[in-house]
Design a binder for these strands. Structure first.
Lengths: 159, 159
DNA sequence: GTTGAAAGGTTATTACG
DNA sequence: CGTAATAACCTTTCAAC
């Protein structure tokens, strides 16, 4: 245990279990056991270890955007002001705190950051941009793209 | 139940419960009960209903990119060939099938689709682009951005 | 070190007020 | 909705590999 963040060696059973749990955490250990070809007890032991070592970061519910009346998803490309790394770090910390920001990627290329932002409507997004971008001296320019359809949404890794 | 996709009216308790489950599905109903101010049984009843109505789409494990040795994340902007809507639909179906494609958004603006793609390394990504893009007549052009740091990753909605 | 079966303890589900 | 009984599940133990 307690080897968080480091490289972990997972065998085929571990990978099979993780493949299941990426699909759904509502499988019982017996269901998983049947799929991976191990006893339920062995599966649970392994799942516990995968949690403890940090291979499984967390287990969460994914909600329907409809249900939460959050129908707008936006993609924002950001260019920050050049020169100081502390500006970058501050921006990262800011983005962590905004509930509207689902995802924030620090990227190479023409832009510095790319955000996936969620909002109830354009007005709410407008307010967000005011708080997060216009009032932020670190931001040189930003560019919003409206998502028309979420074709695929997930955080699964191929195993 | 069975009102999937439609607008659902959630009261404050439901929203509190969803807020918990977006953070972690490992809370026991008693823990949730304490947080939201309801009995454990009432919480479970509501959770069952939230699942049945589709407010909770699914419950999944989020893995560490390190653990699965999948250290590359890429952002791909795609322009498709104009004219036929069946080309768009076919492209969407394709993207659903690729395990490398974590997310696919159909967007407005200069590009048509934006993908979040994951790969072991550049070579694996190269192979993916060959299969998914170069051999795909629907694609007019595509543009890859390398993610240097995943500052924030999630699918939570503000409640 | 690992496994699997049966014990016990915890949690979720059902029945009823 | 909440309380209490039932059922399902997870965790621990332990013998064996």
């Amino acid at each position: 245990m307690i080897n968080i963040g480091a490289y972990m060696d997972l065998d085929g059973f571990d990978r099979s279990i993780l493949r299941c749990l990426q699909q759904s955490t509502r499988f019982t250990s017996e269901q998983i056991a049947e799929k991976v070809g191990l006893s339920a007890t062995a599966c649970q032991r392994r799942i516990k270890r995968l949690r403890d070592t940090g291979a499984i970061v967390r287990e969460v519910a994914i909600l329907s955007p409809d249900a939460v009346e959050n129908r707008l998803t936006l993609l924002v490309q950001i260019v920050v002001k050049r020169g100081r790394s502390d500006v970058i770090d501050a921006f990262k910390r800011d983005m962590m705190t905004y509930a509207e920001v689902q995802q924030c990627y620090y990227v190479t290329g023409a832009f510095d950051f790319i955000l996936i932002v969620t909002a109830r409507d354009i007005v709410e997004y407008e307010h967000f941009t005011r708080r997060a971008f216009f009032d932020n001296p670190a931001i040189h320019e930003f560019n919003t793209t409206v998502v028309m359809e979420q074709v695929k949404v997930g955080l699964e890794y191929p195993l």
